[in-house]
Design a protein around this nucleic acid. Sequence first.
DNA 1: ACCTGAACACCGTTCAAGT
DNA 2: ACCTGAACACCGTTCAAGT
Lengths: 189, 189
Amino acid sequence: MTTDKKLVAAAKRLLDTGGDEAVTLRAVGHACGISHNAPYKHFKNRDALLAAVATADFTLLADAFRQVRSSAEKPTAKLTRTLKVVVDFSKKHPARYHLLFSNPSIAAQQGELKKASVGAFAEVVGIVGECQSLGKLPEAPSATLAVLLFATAHGLIAIEASGGLHPEKGLTGVAPGLELLVQLLSRKQ
Amino acid sequence: MTTDKKLVAAAKRLLDTGGDEAVTLRAVGHACGISHNAPYKHFKNRDALLAAVATADFTLLADAFRQVRSSAEKPTAKLTRTLKVVVDFSKKHPARYHLLFSNPSIAAQQGELKKASVGAFAEVVGIVGECQSLGKLPEAPSATLAVLLFATAHGLIAIEASGGLHPEKGLTGVAPGLELLVQLLSRKQ
DNA sequence: ACCTGAACACCGTTCAAGT
DNA sequence: ACCTGAACACCGTTCAAGT
């Protein structure tokens, strides 16, 4: 494995075990058996390394979405599974998920990162389109509807992570919330 | 003004002008004319100061929501205005908004912060309930529906801040997205 | 009680120097 | 080309000392 990849892998591991603040270039370098400033030979700075992690994770999600999309399931089941992929990722890798949609420094990045995120999103749009073809989702531009669904998923995940979801508020989790949304949207006119 | 309030005000100002990273205890202290470690006499640490900012901003939002709720407008207009309050705040104070729903360190806080956020949310629930009474929103627990609407707003805001909203994707902004959602939800069965 | 200055243990980042 | 060690300019946080 090339040093670039090793650094990204080490950063992922540190994010998973200790969160954003655990990813110091010193720790990343040390985890790869190189000095604390050798990472600068591979990435411009800390943000560039984190952006590389985000790019890799967007590609990971895109692959998972693609797999769901090409399965033999019903479109509505595919949609549910697609959203579940996102929710599961956010629970398994909270710090890495946070990097994808809630990190201002990363958001500023262009290029590869943007391309990877657009690629992942395109898969979701495709699945939403399938649902619409069967009349399971209302008529609206697929991309618009996909953004809406995805935004709701992200919002629920963020609110839950902020400790804002309580049973007494009438919402017990992210998945039930998304189920309700899809159900309300799929009502026949 | 007491020193506590002065520190919070200074932190707000720094967040607005330079973002999260500009809020060093040294800068906050200096802005208040005290030494770099005097803030520790008023707040346990940096996170506690930021949590105080978040608490104050939740209270600010709650007041704005209350004002909208007690206005003479139609419930649907109140809902639109409530969501607009959130969107406007996120645009005017991005770093402070990020603190409210996207900061893991702040999310861990309990006590005053949680109370303030619950208070703000209660207003939204009330307005959603009014809309439901008039049949403008589907029948579901008001709190559940309120969370759903709020989550979508937050998700759209976060995705836009991450640079993920493009006209070619079929979604030009946060407000239009929310309009579409409300419209789809309010369709008659 | 409240503040100050010095100090410690970290960082990100740069730079000159090594192979 | 790629790496290293030293160094700089920051931080958050702690502590002893002042009033």
